[in-house]
Design a protein around this nucleic acid. Structure first.
Lengths: 225, 225
DNA sequence: CCCACTTGACGTACACCTGACACTAACCCT
DNA sequence: AGGGTTAGTGTCAGGTGTACGTCAAGTGGG
């Protein structure tokens, strides 16, 4: 601090974060939605989010809102800001600018329930969500685009799975995110060629031939940009 | 408006925009920088930027700052938000969150001079800029990355040139942005294969064989993402 | 116990894109 | 006329993506 103050022309606006948190459930890509308990848009579904506290980093605010609006126990495996929504009329309460974040939660039935200002929290279909409050449909659409982009550029799909997984499971993640079918053989070839996976033991699937289990190779990180 | 007010937990922070405006000059990629006339960082180079006014859209604020801090007459051919910088300590005056924008200005010697709170404005090398104020070097680096990405995904290179241009000129834009040399023949092959260019008349270059002039084909737009 | 079913694993052929590379064509100036 | 300068062109090798058929290894039912 230098004793300098914010100049008078420094417009004060509400600064918020919204989070599009994704996880896989039953072969489907789900997004975490909350049912609002307050006006405006009471009882409507919305992305979790809220105002940034003074002295709080943007990503910290995103994590805090995830934890208080929903009871998600697991740490996100990935969290990145992807766009800032600041259109003047986007919130009836006044000028609120929201820095939207994309989060990926690991596998495991993440039990959620309401908390904070929300009546309820639920995992719902990301590609076919219910009607959302505010401009949250636009935010979700953009989050999906970014997620699909990260699938190719980074190896973000791994973040959806437990430490050890089979190739068909990984393919399922890709298919769920891209919302289309992929070819088994080409998928296998492509992924193994990247050498980001190392095999381990076996596993039975109940039906059909057991699949090889893989884990992410050492020194493989999710790309940044 | 519904009569709803901003809730008390709506933290008030300073909302700003910063603009990384690019243009080609003499075969080099330049970025528009201003010399600050005020504390903090007086007399240091910085990206043009400033606070968002109440009721003003983010991209409008970016355009206004471009026009007032520098005397750029030309409309940007491209303007997009690319990242929001909100780290707590990034500005000594307090919590200021800046939505960074990437702008592309068309060809033509854009004369600039100071205006508003700036002593001077100048086009300087984008890849080897002077030392910059605040975290503007980080903003510029990220802007360059985005610009390079847009080169492949969209056809953003066309925005740097006048309506009609030669292939070697276009190649020059690519090389300046990527900061490396490209092969003539492969570049030509690649670009013409995309069929986003249509030929027109001839042109003399003063030296050497005259080059074919092209213009962008109809219904070719810059991709959004 | 055997057979049918289910799912995992693997290889090949083709189209396409990319990158390396050297020479001729057209115009200017002296 | 000739030298200087820049524009324009083709081919080949290697890699990448995609389409596609077949065998392998389990499970479960009759």
């Amino acid at each position: 601090m230098t004793g300098l103050a914010l100049p008078p022309q420094a417009t004060q606006v509400g600064l918020a974060v919204d989070i599009a948190a994704f996880a896989m459930h039953g072969g489907e890509l789900n997004v975490l939605l909350v049912q609002r308990g307050q006006l405006p848009h009471a009882r409507d579904w919305a992305l979790p989010g809220g105002f940034v506290q003074p002295g709080e980093e943007l990503h910290e605010a995103a994590l805090r809102e995830l934890r208080t609006e929903t009871t998600v126990q697991l740490e996100p495996r990935h969290l990145e800001q992807f766009y800032t929504f600041g259109e003047v009329g986007r919130d009836p309460r006044g000028r609120i600018v929201s820095v939207a974040h994309l989060a990926v939660l690991p596998h495991g039935t993440v039990s959620v329930s309401g908390g904070g200002h929300t009546l309820e929290a639920e995992w719902l279909s990301a590609h076919r969500p219910p009607r959302l409050a505010f401009d949250h449909q636009a935010i979700l659409t953009r989050a999906l685009l970014r997620l699909q982009l990260r699938l190719e550029y980074a190896n973000l799909a791994l973040e959806f799975l437990p430490d050890t997984f089979t190739l068909p499971e990984l393919q399922g993640v890709y298919e769920a995110i891209l919302d289309r079918q992929l070819d088994k053989r080409n998928f296998r070839k492509r992924l193994l060629a990247q050498s980001i996976l190392t095999p381990s033991g076996e596993r039975r699937s109940g039906v059909g031939r057991p699949a090889q289990l893989y884990r992410r190779a050492k020194n493989v990180r999710v790309a940044a940009l």
